[in-house]
Design a protein around this nucleic acid. Sequence first.
DNA 1: ACTGTCAAGAAGTGTT
DNA 2: AACACTTCTTGACAGT
Length: 278
Amino acid sequence: MDLDHDASISGLHLVLGLALTSKTHKETLTPSSPQSNKVVVDDHFDLIRATSKKPYSEDGPSLTLALSGENYNLINQVTLDLSTQTSPLSTVSSFSDGGVKRERELSSEEIERVSSRVSGDEDEDATIARKKLRLNKNQSAMLEENFKQHSTLNPKQKQALAKQLNLRPRQVEVWFQNRRARTKLKQTEMDCEFLKKCCETLTDENMRLQKELQELKALKLSQPLYIPMSATTMCPSCERLSGGGSSGGASNKRTPFSMSMAAKPHFYNPFNNPSAAC
DNA sequence: ACTGTCAAGAAGTGTT
DNA sequence: AACACTTCTTGACAGT
């Protein structure tokens, strides 16, 4: 279902297309009439907001234009001259925020998306790209400061902060959500690095112990210990009898338990030993 | 100047 | 409501 809105508000000629069910994002633009080939949108964000999905349009199709940009800190004027399709990037939007000037250009795709709403033709069920607001330095700094104090906000704090920063409470909420996620991600990355180092240390330790074992085996072959043939010892770990009748070869299973206990290994646990690599 | 790539971050959606 | 996951926008940068 497509809706076309023609509006004329105190001299401003607004021609707004609202496609509710268009399927494709990229739609070719064909101005419906020569009289309506110019679109002047005040507060472009509100336009996008009004045409996008939840949470901005809970009650179905609605289109509200706030000429003063009441809910946003940005007052935008986007002029789309639909008769000059040769220069899609020529659209300029100017932002003002208490002296902090910001600029951005609309991509050709964005223009097409908006324009497709204007033309009102083509497919249905398209979801208009959300317009992403870039927080200015002041807002970011303020949010960061608040995050340091408490990483979560109660509704009152959220409202107050939103009002203070001229943002919607939802934006503040999302910012804190993303900020918490980034903190967690950073922590996870640090943990990962830590575990990597531990793994490396353990690998090295393992190699060292293997080498040591080989050396001890070689030593044992050259200088066999005297073990009385009558003595049988139960190995606590492999539960094998050693010493009784078996000749001491190079096999691990035949290694006399007394020997392995004689060469007392020193186990290294990187989790308990912060002095090494970790 | 243009284009492709990438990281950061804003926002949407579904789950707990 | 918070979170995890995802999508999408944006700006910076490198290569041409």
